[in-house]
Amino acid sequence: MSQLHQMSGKSDATKREWSRFKYPQSLYKYGITLGVVLFIIYSLHYLNVDLSRLFGIFGRLGDLLANRYYPPDIEYIKDADYIGSIIETIQMAYLGALFGILISIFLGWFAAYNVSPSRRYLYPVARVVTMLFRSVHEMIWAILFVTILGFGMLPGVLALTMFSVGFAGKLFAEEIEAIHMGEVEAIRAMGGNHLQVFVYGVVPQVRVALTGIAIYTWDVAFRAATVVGFVGAGGMGWYLKRNVMQIETHRTAAILLSILILVIISEFISAWARNYVSKAK
């Protein structure tokens, strides 16, 4: 818009064709576009992707769902064992998110530049730890813990803890970095130490936001919990894996359906709870 105004001021001196981007910007713009297109073409070639298969995919997927997966085996998911595994999944997600949030409150505190107790040592360490936890996918954490601790729900809980630390730690740190520094300075001026600054200066400001993030973390951890059993870490994932391996497609469809319903329910609960918390401010 501003360019348009500039041009209208000049237009009596020189008559020019209007173009949205002027010379240096247009060069960057088209250069970047060209680079992206070339990169896409090269990577499609590198990955050996046959694009012609893309066009038939919806038909094929529809066929697949209609012929092989269609009548989901509802009886299977009403089974007591399966219901038990759903409860296990919920417990795993609950505990994992809880431990993760407890750890990430401290990690977020250390990783927030403005109130970090030690900017030289704790801040970079907390940053790197959060990054490491975030960059490793929850399935990989689950595999590692299953290797170390054996099958069961404990490795699942630990994997979800790692996942939640990575997820919530960064958001907590960002939230803490956005606070008003006035309160912090007041408590510092009164001679408060780092812990007192955190408890009386930071926590009251970020309480509501942190609760919202915590609820959201639980929601995301539940989604992850439905599949960590895939590698033997307890919960519904194990049933999914077994039925996929045995090509029991009707049962697989039923399990996917149950996952979908549970995730939608958890999403509703989390949206309601976040709404309640933000209103109670």
């Binding site: 296990e88 417990q91 795993m92 609950y94 505990l95 729900m153 404990l154 699942g156 307890g234």
Partner: peptide
Amino acid sequence: WSIKATIIDDTD
């Protein structure tokens, strides 16, 4: 309840 189920009952 969750700790009892995961860490006490289910873990070997």
